[in-house]
Design a protein around this nucleic acid. Sequence first.
DNA 1: CAACACTTACTGAACGTTCGGTAAGTATCA
DNA 2: TGATACTTACCGAACGTTCAGTAAGTGTTG
Lengths: 202, 202
Amino acid sequence: MASDSPKQHWSTAEEEIMEATYRALLKHGYADLSISRIADELDKSKAAIYYHYDTKDDLLVAFLEFAVDRFEETIETETGDEPPEDLEHVIEKLLPLQPDEEQRQLQAVLVGLRSQAVTNEVFREQFTQIDERLAATVRSIVECGIDDDTFRDVDPSRVAEHILATVNGAMYGRVTTDRKSAAAAARVSLASYIDSELRCRS
Amino acid sequence: MASDSPKQHWSTAEEEIMEATYRALLKHGYADLSISRIADELDKSKAAIYYHYDTKDDLLVAFLEFAVDRFEETIETETGDEPPEDLEHVIEKLLPLQPDEEQRQLQAVLVGLRSQAVTNEVFREQFTQIDERLAATVRSIVECGIDDDTFRDVDPSRVAEHILATVNGAMYGRVTTDRKSAAAAARVSLASYIDSELRCRS
DNA sequence: CAACACTTACTGAACGTTCGGTAAGTATCA
DNA sequence: TGATACTTACCGAACGTTCAGTAAGTGTTG
């Protein structure tokens, strides 16, 4: 009974399948993900999965949405009225100095999915949107800071892309290399850039 | 320290297989790569591949080396004696403002391989080394600049990680999203950061 | 220089396993 | 009783891998 209507909510069974897919991805990676392996992580049979999803591709697209939702939950943040602190706050959410295991796992899964965006259009559109939203968030904070003379008169969208690329790159390095302190070093340097190049000297 | 493996050179047949693997990866992506699909890109049979490589894993490890070699060829650069220009030069090699199709393809393949580093230790070690070398290159340029008073007295390794993360992140975004000008914007902002935060005011 | 032994670089046909997917049946409840 | 949410049993295709066989060389010997 896989409907193609815009669903915001998942049934219990569907949520269990998504959770099982998550575990299977962590264990085997995207390239070695199979319906059987998802069923192994599930208290149900392989065919039960096909009761809820017509094809493996359908399931994967649903899971992409599931993972993206989870990612956007973890970075939800209310912006205040002090741009430098807001920026710091957003960056800490995206690239914590000491990430917990849960967030590391989610990022590992997302990197696996994102690599599919090279070949798969549906995936690429999804990650294009994610980056678009993140860039917009950062840009609006920078614009805010320029308006109230906290920040200098820089190009907000260029600076936003710079910050986003740095954060994405550091996160990417964190899950694909053993260079333990690299991400934190990049973040510290980024913070000092914000503080001394971006902030007004007054 | 890494043991120096003697395999620097490939036979004609092996090179053909590597080239076919490259094409198959571009067409199908890592997750859907199979020996049959490599053979389809090759003027030889499936079994011929097994004459040269014992297992699919062996082939993949060999191909990783092949792709990494190709990547390091494209970014080879001699450093001069003017740090700001050297930095610009290295960044242009890694993240060209107008990348040609060949470089885009290589980066697409590398992103596919790199996502395997999350699950596969051999792959992770390889990409750890790549990032280590790149960071070292950037760091030594920054150190040079500090020594001859071109750059301010910043923390060279932090700045190097910042630059590397930005470049990696922008490249990652370039091949996994449709955000056409994002990478260039990030690069421009990074260049202006180098010019105004890093360079000495004198 | 021809006969023989042996190597290299393959081919085509299979092997057993796993894949994505389905058909038919069953237990549970409104 | 009929819809819902499954299970068991299975299908053909594709998977990685192996095998027997072979054409084209290379080196050795009479």
